[in-house]
């Protein structure tokens, strides 16, 4: 058994999907945590909110992420992980589909499996399309091209303002919300599936994995979705 065989067998490929998937899940916790700083500016004068914050806390957090060498190194790992997950995912999906050349006249539809567990490739592709738009909206502007919507404030990019401008357009908000819904369903299956792939089969632990998975799949995408909505409706900024 060589390393190559270990990672390219059917289970090996799934291991790669599961590990990269879990890595992305950890990344999203950091991502949602940092971005949730925009809510500090929420228009209610109750602790911890401060309507006069105007994104100061968020901009500082974003600046830390962009200016810390360790984070920038991890960013390279993140891109590698996403690309590996996407390429492997699409290849697995294509390979699995090719295993039944002649289909059934009466489909098995719905019996015994959730639609989103069967739609992982589609949901992932929707997320991927969104990611391209998302990177163009923020990452490319922050790291490469710069943008007039993102002036320097106190030596830091005003990312908060860039978000405000980006989310002033309704279609952008709708696309982001749809992407969050896709992510929620992708994770509703993916979270627990990843642990099964890694070999977790103890009932006691699977119960925890399943509950945490459902919680994560609802809370994280919901928080993300609230960001464009809150900015569009003027709850913050």
């Amino acid at each position: 058994m060589t390393w190559k065989q270990a990672f390219t067998s059917s289970i090996g490929k799934k291991l790669v999907m599961g590990l990269t998937g879990l890595f992305l899940i950890v990344f999203l916790i950091v991502h949602v945590g940092i971005n949730a700083c925009i809510f500090a500016d929420l228009n209610v004068a109750v602790w911890p909110f401060d309507p006069s914050d105007d994104g100061a806390i968020f901009n500082r957090a974003a600046h830390f992420m962009g200016s810390t060498i360790l984070i920038r190194i991890l960013e390279v790992g993140l891109f590698a992980g996403i690309i590996l997950h996407i390429v492997q995912g699409l290849m697995l999906e294509a390979s699995n589909r090719s295993k039944r050349t002649q289909g059934y006249a009466v489909p098995l539809a719905g019996r015994g499996s959730k639609w989103y567990s069967r739609a992982m490739g589609l949901l992932g592709t929707l997320i991927m399309i969104f990611l391209i738009l998302h990177l163009a909206h923020f990452w490319v502007k922050a790291r490469i091209t710069g943008s007039d919507d993102m002036p320097e404030v106190a030596g830091m990019h005003d990312m908060f303002n860039l978000m405000k401008v980006t989310f002033s357009e309704l279609w952008v908000v709708i696309v982001y919300v749809l992407a969050c819904i896709s992510l929620a369903y992708h994770l509703l299956h993916g979270f627990q599936s990843a642990f099964r792939t890694l070999g977790v089969h103890n009932n006691k632990w699977m119960t925890i994995v399943q509950s945490v998975g459902v919680g994560y799949s609802i809370i994280v995408p919901l928080l993300f979705a609230l960001m464009p909505i809150a900015m569009y409706l003027g709850w913050v900024g």
Binding site: L92, S95, K99, G112, K114, F195, G199
Partner: peptide, 28 residues
């Protein structure tokens, strides 16, 4: 044969009630 994506359709149709848990055990 294809790779497992843990959808659970197999368990639902198995005439002998073989549990999906076995797949996770095989992965391990």
């Amino acid at each position: 044969f294809g790779a497992c994506t843990n959808t659970g359709a197999c368990e639902a149709v198995c005439p002998k009630g073989i549990s999906l848990t076995n797949i996770a055990r095989l992965n391990q």
